[in-house]
Design a protein around this nucleic acid. Structure first.
Length: 693
DNA sequence: CGGGGGCAGT
DNA sequence: ACTGCCC
């Protein structure tokens, strides 16, 4: 609806139209603008950065456990290697390879489970937060990519740059052999942008210990495309005169960001497979297939044209948790899973501090032909008093009240009278509402970028400091070098409050809805009763699924598995009993990664998810708090809170008694074992909500 | 084809 | 409120 409209009032539609039609191949309108002066601030030209961390999950795991640095490492989710470090790539392992294939390629491959995204999410936000501290216009794309609009920053540097100054590029320049000085002075803004990119990558490395690639260009599309040209830990700048080259270099339409699977298929049906095909295809015909807005966007993308703004991401608009599995076919399992997901969501929601107004349940059903997963979902409002509980302290109560809601949604989709076969369940909180009275600037966006900010007092996040040098850190040498033009960064007010309007031709469908500007940070998470060791004796579990209705619907065998009806409705069982009765899925993740856990599991890292295919990984000094292979200097450079996290990580690496329990790898273990801990007591309370309605 | 997350369209 | 599509 608001796809076509808006923008500052100029008729974008007309403009795009004629634009596309008059530059079928060159896609270079902006370039002449940029060429026209070395000093002039060609107003339309932006400087956009795209950051893309190297094998993000693998990096995080290597940070957590440095002994993984030198071994081939794969991050496993279910039966897939979602990413792997470069050592593993050297052995032929690739992203999204099945575990079986990967082990075949590289028998010594070490696997770490990556289904629990907590650490990745945390570090991901730390990165975004770091970038935001330099410049407020940061947009996240997934966990490991960020766009940044540094136009303002560059303009400022440009203004400070003496006319005599000689420009140069940091890093690579696309399609140019050695950085060419003449080119740099033709593109001073991009040249400066490449310096900013280098400084930021440096900051990312020194503050977070992460490496990554950056692309520097005039749009999100181009920055993203160019950032990957030199792969690990490098950066590349794309000059406008090479836009045609880079678009032409793409092997297929699918490679164009914004063209997904479905779109590629529809394009192919029109006979379009290469980028050039689309560039040359008549817009009118395209409109017939996709409608005017999409057609124009697609064609522009193929031409390398993208004017979608970098839309500051801010705090998330929804929090969800999901799990996939081979099969869930009983209401009981559904309920358990929902409880599990809700509990962990609750924890996150609580930290977030906002209050969800909507609950959504999504599921995926099994179907042989349904390879390309279709999901269905139902959602409903969350009663206000329940929402309150989430945000306040009684998250357990909240779970108890939410579970029946979720089950209702479930029944809207699944007829329990018939057999069903679920493959995935997702629970989502959305419509997040800032709570409480406005407490001031700290509340809003920062509230999600929480707790990391240096206690250093200082303005939590006053976006004014756009220059690295102005940051407190005093890793100053990092920034001083490239900058003969350093400046004190006068506290000039900032762009902050203005939330960019949606824009028609968004690259990734980026559009911003209005978001509450101020949220109050409520008293921090109160009690975290998350006992990792589930040995709480007081836990009394009664299976919640006592609804006579539901029970009656269960197949006979299942009923037999359940505690007797009497038990169910009256008795309390210990968690252990519960586990046994219900075929315990929790403690499984206590066993080593399971997949390839051959005899000598003794070498595995204690307490970690690490598995190894061949022999045990290099021995880790037992019990050391500071792993030998951690560079102390690097470590000491890290911010206090990051250090703390790592330390506690290492500290936890004590042997954990684990039953050699070799479960069948096929059985989907509860991947987040901690979640199991608190669930018993809640289940008990659930009783009252499952009385026959 | 994992686990998220966001938007546009209806 | 839901689905589809994108990353």
């Amino acid at each position: 609806m608001d796809n076509s409209e808006n923008d500052t009032g100029e008729d974008e539609t007309e403009w795009n139209n004629s634009y596309v039609d008059s530059f079928p191949l060159s896609a270079n309108a902006p370039s002449d603008a940029s060429l026209d002066k070395t000093s002039g601030a060609t107003p339309g030209e932006r400087v956009i950065l795209h950051f893309d961390l190297d094998c993000f999950y693998a990096q995080v795991e290597m940070l957590r456990n440095p002994s993984l640095r030198d071994v081939p490492l794969g991050i496993q989710q279910k039966y897939i290697i979602v990413t792997c470090n470069y050592v593993a790539r050297g052995h032929g392992v690739t992203k999204l390879m099945s575990v079986t294939d990967a082990k075949e390629k590289c028998p010594q491959l070490v696997l770490v489970k990556g289904e629990d995204l907590t650490h990745y999410r945390d570090i991901s936000y730390k990165l975004t937060e770091l970038l935001v501290s330099f410049c407020p216009l940061v947009e996240r794309l997934g966990f490991d990519e960020n766009f940044m609009d540094i136009t303002k920053m560059v303009e400022r540097r440009l203004a400070e740059t003496p006319a005599s100054n000689h420009f140069s590029f940091k890093g690579h320049v696309y399609n140019h052999r050695s950085a060419d000085v003449a080119k740099a002075s033709d593109h001073p803004r991009l040249a400066l942008g490449s310096h900013v990119a280098a400084e930021l990558r440096d900051a990312i490395h020194s503050k977070l210990g992460l490496t990554g690639c950056a692309g520097v260009a005039t749009s999100k599309l181009l920055a993203k495309l160019v950032s990957g040209t030199f792969k690990p830990n490098q950066q590349t700048t794309l000059l406008p005169e090479n836009v045609g080259d880079i678009m032409g270099s793409l092997s297929g339409l699918r490679k164009v960001p914004g063209v997904g699977h479905q779109t590629a298929k529809r394009l192919q049906a029109l006979g379009l497979v290469g980028v050039k095909d689309l560039q040359l295809f008549p817009l009118n015909d395209l409109v017939k297939e996709f409608g005017a807005p999409s057609a124009r966007r697609l064609k522009n993308l193929a031409l390398g044209v993208d004017d979608s703004p970098v839309a500051p991401t801010g705090a998330p608009q929804s929090l969800s948790d999901e799990d996939s599995f081979k099969k869930i076919s009983t209401t009981r399992e559904v309920l358990e899973k929902i409880q599990e997901l809700l509990s962990s969501l609750m924890e996150r929601m609580h930290k977030d501090g906002r209050q969800p107004q909507t609950l959504r349940l999504t599921l995926r059903r099994y179907s042989a032909t349904n390879k390309w997963f279709s999901r269905e979902s139902r959602q409903c409002p969350i009663p206000n008093h329940v929402g309150q509980k989430i945000a306040s302290d009684s998250s357990e109560d909240a779970v108890v009240q939410l579970v029946p809601l979720a089950m209702k949604l479930f029944h809207k989709m699944v007829d329990c009278g018939a057999a069903f076969h679920l493959t995935l369940i997702n629970v989502c909180f959305s419509n997040l509402q800032a709570r409480g009275p406005a407490v001031g600037a700290k509340g809003s966006i920062t509230s999600f970028f929480r707790q990391n900010l240096p206690p250093k007092g200082a303005e939590m996040f006053s976006p004014q400091s756009q220059e690295p040098s102005s940051r407190s850190g005093n890793t100053d040498h990092l920034f001083s070098a490239p900058r003969s033009l350093a400046q004190p960064t006068p506290p000039h007010e900032t762009v902050t409050a203005e939330i960019p309007r949606g824009c028609g031709a968004d690259l990734h469908g980026l559009k911003r809805k209005q978001r509450p500007v101020v949220a109050s940070k409520k008293p921090p998470l109160v009690k975290e009763s998350r006992s990792t060791a589930g040995s709480d004796p007081k836990v009394a579990v009664t299976h919640p699924n006592v609804d006579a209705e539901v029970f009656g619907l269960l197949p006979e065998e299942v009923r037999m598995e359940l505690p007797s009806a009497a038990d169910v409705s009256v008795s309390r069982v210990t968690e252990n009993e519960f586990s046994q009765a219900f075929g315990d899925s929790q403690n499984q993740s206590a066993s080593p990664t399971a997949v390839n856990h051959k005899a000598e599991a003794s070498g595995a890292f204690p307490g970690e998810n690490v598995t190894e295919a061949g022999r045990p990984p290099p021995p880790l000094p037992p019990d050391c708090e500071f792993p030998g292979d951690v560079d102390p200097e690097v470590f000491s450079e890290l911010p206090a809170d990051v250090q703390k996290e790592l330390m506690s990580e290492w500290r936890r690496r004590k042997p954990v008694l684990k039953a050699p329990s070799s479960r069948k790898p096929g059985r989907s273990p509860t991947t987040k074992d901690r979640k199991a801990a608190g669930k018993g007591s809640q289940a008990n309370n659930l009783l009252k909500y499952f009385k026959p309605s």
